[in-house]
Amino acid sequence: MSARLAGADGDTRTLLGLHTRTAWFIFGLNTVVNLALVVWCGDRLSPLWLPLVGWCLVVASGAALLLVGGDPLPVWASACIALSGPLAVVLTVPAISMDTYDPHAIWMTGPVTCVLAYLCVRGRSAFGWLGLTTMIGALVVWTWRVGMGPTAGLVLAGSNFAALGMATFFAYTIRPAAESIYALRSREAQRAADEAGAAAILDVRDRRIEQLDTDARPLLQRIADGAELTTDERIECRMLEAHLRDGLRGTVLAAEPVVTAARAARLRGVEVVLLDDGAIASVDSPQARAVRATLATELDAARDGRVTARVLPTGRERLGTVVADTGTGYRRLEFGPTGEVVSVLVDDE
């Protein structure tokens, strides 16, 4: 069973809790027990360092099972884990003295089978069965060579076939269920994101409606009543129209101190154009504040002509530009990724 689980976090380690402290505690406890078995049989093992190296291999394979990510488990890790059992057998049996033979010296069959069972659950059943059959094959060869007969090797570890069979069945049962769980989680996360996005859009709409009601209602009411607008009211209508246009076309730029500076510049006769093409994600970001501060300075300095500020699309080398064209001179500012001015071009005609 090697189907890849859905979702970025679709790893059976998460589903089975293999990444938790409890899993590491059980792993550590099992490691200590296995070491105790090796030490307990130490007077019947010579040289002792061979079984200790085998113990290290089993510990490393168990740790790899807990640490290595990916679903299914990467091939290289699966192959190393599958080989740990046979290698532990090959390293241990030469140290066993048949004069003082103790079945406990063949300690590795249990922990290795446990590791191989979880290897099946991690999506590498073929490697799990390869490791078990190879380990039992090595035991059969050893018992045959020392005169115990090949059947003795099967008796020592043959019962582990049932354990691995159950693990394989579990893998074919749990992995499709896990895939469904992670797919459902992904859909729920996407639905929550969509709902949050929709709520944000509605919130922006409500705030704009409230602002429009505050700013435009009095003038609209006078127009609806048929009253003759004064010169100041006509100017206010133009300022309001420009402000509303800024909010739609230059969202990130249409905030203080730019709003006040743009209004003052327009009252002086300067044409102000604000454009937002999306390179700045948030109105409250440090980049947005830095760009607005520089733009407000340019607007305060403008006495006539046209000032065009633009936030560029994402993926560009520059974050945005400000172009001030007075008719007799030209000034262009370019902003870097953090909102700082990185280029100033002045052309006085």
Rank of each mutant, 00 (worst) to 15 (best):
A193K: 08
R175M: 09
R217H: 09
G147W: 02
L184N: 12
M166E: 06
A162F: 15
A178Y: 11
Y182I: 02
V204P: 10
E233T: 12
R234E: 07
M239T: 09
I201C: 04
A200T: 07
A199L: 10
A216S: 15
L229M: 11
R205F: 00
Q190N: 08
M166F: 15
A198S: 09
D194I: 06
M239R: 15
L219I: 06
M148T: 00
A193C: 02
M166R: 12
I174A: 15
F161M: 11
A242T: 05
R217W: 00
D203T: 12
A167M: 04
E241I: 14
T151I: 07
P218V: 00
D213T: 11
G226R: 05
A216R: 12
D194E: 13
I174S: 15
G226M: 05
G149P: 01
T151L: 12
A178D: 08
G165T: 04
R217Q: 05
E233L: 11
A167L: 04
E228K: 02
A189D: 09
A157M: 02
G226V: 05
T230H: 01
A192L: 08
T214P: 00
E228R: 02
T168F: 04
H243M: 11
R222I: 03
L220E: 01
I201W: 06
A224T: 11
A152E: 06
G149E: 01
I174F: 15
P176D: 01
A216V: 12
A193T: 06
Y182G: 05
G153L: 00
L202A: 13
I223F: 07
Y172I: 07
A199W: 06
D213G: 00
R208E: 05
N160A: 08
L154I: 10
V146I: 03
A189C: 03
F170H: 09
G158S: 00
T168K: 05
G158N: 03
R217P: 01
T230Y: 03
L220N: 05
A242G: 13
D232T: 09
A163D: 09
R185K: 13
A189H: 02
R208C: 02
R191N: 08
G158D: 03
G153K: 02
D194S: 05
I235N: 14
T173M: 14
A196I: 11
T151A: 14
D232L: 07
E188S: 12
R238G: 05
V146G: 00
E241Q: 09
A189I: 05
I209Q: 09
A183I: 03
I181S: 14
D194K: 08
A196F: 12
R187W: 08
E188H: 14
L212W: 06
R234A: 11
R175E: 03
A198P: 09
D203G: 11
T173G: 12
T230A: 00
L229Y: 02
L164N: 03
I235D: 14
E236T: 02
L164C: 05
E233W: 11
A177K: 15
R207G: 01
Y182R: 07
R185Q: 13
A227V: 04
E241K: 08
D213F: 03
Q190T: 06
P150E: 00
T168N: 10
D206L: 10
V146Q: 00
A152N: 02
R208L: 02
D213R: 13
G165I: 04
E233V: 09
D225Q: 10
R207T: 07
V155P: 03
I223S: 07
P176F: 04
I235S: 15
I235W: 13
